[in-house]
């Protein structure tokens, strides 16, 4: 067992997948010779050759569109969009093509491809390097959407995504690449080497899509989160002393509704946290599901803590980011409600 950053874990997942299955190919902007701007594909071209790991033109629709064609041929492409903010030119290929190919052809053709993209803010990336577009994928029938919160999950979920026979969107919270960032931007970040989920087994293992993890059991309030917000929620629980149960969803499609409803039935309260904008964010879906399935258990209104419905600002990043203070205030609010 080795301690790894999330970047190293993602690179390892590629390595394991490429060594086990020669149909796995990896490409995107800067991913070949250089190994990716975040270095998640470093060394793969050197190890597996240019036929299986290569640079592409700056053309997201081309990256995903060719991946759909390759997947239809029988390969298993795992491609990188350099930032989730850049995926919009590929959206037609994802929504109208990858997501629907199995359905529209009645299984004649399938699209087993994985599209990785760094997501979320916290790196002063402004409005074009900070977005969290997960709800745009979750809204599309036929796409799976995965968001890991730690190196162990990142490796296991990415291998599971590559092995999945349906298209998977794999959103990597870039603020977590090097450590479990908890929203305290002015404090030093603990590296993954000091975190138990930085322990990454060697070789092949998977973390199944659609299975949430309870990161901290608690009795008083259920906190639903994924990606960076898992660590923010844990910090908020610690700092408020509220006995919160922190659920890391890991994938939002498929969604582990059972773990959510069991928890809310027990706690009677629910706070939903995500970095994406609020209106029609995935928190709206979660709130509706919790209200529908747990209505008679609820002792307080469901509260969402999210990014605001504005573009992601640059200088004002930390007022926009839903940090532990805002999450803590929501926890206090639901505990005070009778």
């Amino acid at each position: 067992m080795a301690r790894m950053t999330m970047i190293e874990a993602i690179r390892d997942a590629h390595d394991v997948s490429m060594s086990r299955d020669e149909k796995v190919v990896v490409f995107g902007q800067d991913v070949g010779y250089f190994g990716g701007v975040f270095r998640c594909t470093k060394g793969l071209q050197q190890k597996y050759g240019m036929q299986r790991c290569f640079d592409t033109p700056i053309n997201e629709s081309g990256i995903v569109g060719t991946a759909v064609g390759m997947a239809a041929y029988g390969l298993r492409p795992c491609v990188e969009i350099q930032f989730a903010d850049y995926m919009y030119p590929a959206y037609d290929q994802l929504v109208s093509e990858a997501a629907r190919l199995r359905y529209r052809s009645n299984g004649d053709f399938i699209a087993p491809l994985t599209v990785r993209m760094p997501t979320g803010g916290g790196i002063f990336g402004g409005q074009t390097h900070s977005q969290s577009p997960e709800a745009l994928f979750a809204h599309v029938s036929g796409l799976k959407t995965v968001i890991p919160s730690n190196p162990y999950d990142a490796k296991g979920l990415l291998i599971a995504s590559i092995e999945d026979n349906d298209p998977v969107i794999f959103l990597e919270p870039k603020r977590l690449y090097n450590g479990p960032f908890d929203g305290h931007h002015d404090a030093a970040v603990t590296p993954w080497s000091k975190h138990e989920l930085g322990e990454v087994p060697e070789g092949h293992y998977t973390v199944p899509l659609g299975k949430a993890a309870i990161r901290r059991p608690g009795a008083d309030v259920t906190i639903l989160a994924y990606g960076t917000m898992v660590h923010v929620a844990l910090a908020a629980v610690e700092e408020t002393g509220v006995d919160g149960e922190v659920i890391d969803l890991r994938s939002i499609v498929p969604l582990d509704l059972d773990t959510i409803t069991e928890s809310v039935a027990k706690t009677g309260r629910c706070v939903i946290v995500h970095e994406a904008t609020r209106t029609c964010g995935f928190g709206a879906e979660l709130a509706a599901l919790v209200a529908h399935h747990c209505f008679y258990s609820l002792e307080a209104a469901i509260v969402r803590v999210t990014g605001y419905d504005t573009p992601y600002p640059h200088a004002q990043e930390w007022d926009y980011f839903p940090g532990p203070k805002r999450v803590g205030a929501a926890l206090t609010q639901v505990m005070e409600a009778s």
Partner: peptide, 25 residues
């Protein structure tokens, strides 16, 4: 005969991807 989409032009780039796969394989 690849599945027809109805969204115009999307299949043109997929076709290139299929041919790239043939080369890779």
């Amino acid at each position: 005969y690849f599945s027809i989409s109805g969204n115009l032009g999307t299949q043109f780039v997929q076709c290139v991807g299929w041919a790239m796969a043939s080369a890779i394989a």
